[in-house]
């Protein structure tokens, strides 16, 4: 699969929530942390619309804080709804991961 963006689409929201759950953070830092964890081609622009959706759905809350350079920076923290969403994501992810693992490790199957 050449383009992984479609695969990533569904999982990125959960991963953003995970990054925000560790500490209050801002868009650029989230994209850098995702990249540092091995997510390919994740820019601030990739995650910005997802942050908007998470904020709209009440999973994260934003506050503006002074930045050492330039304008105020938008920091995000997880809300209670966000914590629940993150837990639900992790449960679903483990199920999917187990299913994919199981499928690919089936003996006598030539699907690999």
């Amino acid at each position: 699969m050449k383009d992984v963006s479609q695969m990533l689409k569904g999982t990125l929201e959960g991963c953003i929530l995970k990054v925000i759950s560790t500490s209050e953070t801002y868009g650029y830092e989230i994209s850098e942390k995702l990249k540092a964890n091995g997510f390919p081609d994740i820019s601030e622009g990739t995650i910005y619309p997802l942050l908007l959706r998470l904020e709209k759905n009440g999973c994260i809350a934003a506050t503006y804080k002074n930045s050492p350079l330039g304008p105020k920076r938008k920091y995000f923290k997880l809300t209670d709804a966000g914590k629940q969403e993150l837990d639900a994501f992790w449960v679903k992810w483990l199920e999917i991961e187990a299913a994919v693992h199981h499928l690919f490790q089936m003996k006598g199957d030539d699907s690999q």
Partner: peptide, 29 residues
């Protein structure tokens, strides 16, 4: 607009192009 301005100013300070921050397809963004 405030978010986009903040994103752009921060990119300028890092000497990065807006294209590298947002991706080439601005309409899709």
């Amino acid at each position: 607009r405030q978010d986009l301005l903040e994103m752009t100013i921060a990119a300028q300070e890092r000497s990065e192009s807006l294209e590298s921050v947002i991706g080439g397809d601005y309409k899709a963004f």
